[in-house]
Amino acid sequence: MMVGINDPWVALAYLLSFVGSVACVMYGVINWNKGDEPIGPEDTNWAKEEKEEIEAAL
């Protein structure tokens, strides 16, 4: 029995919920500075169009 939970499958889910969160934190910290990409014209154009469309809808 783990922390008062008698079914190992439920205890495992309880444990994995914590472990999963910690794993996300660790992954993010380890890769904090990886994957930066320069902004290209298509990114900027996409963002401008997106903004215009939402403004028009309001």
Binding site: F18, S21, C24, K34
Partner: peptide, 22 residues
Amino acid sequence: FMTVKSKQSLNRAIVAGGIFIF
């Protein structure tokens, strides 16, 4: 996902995302 700048933004957002969902 289309509104983020790069993969780096996603990598960094995972930190708070994991905690938030828990």
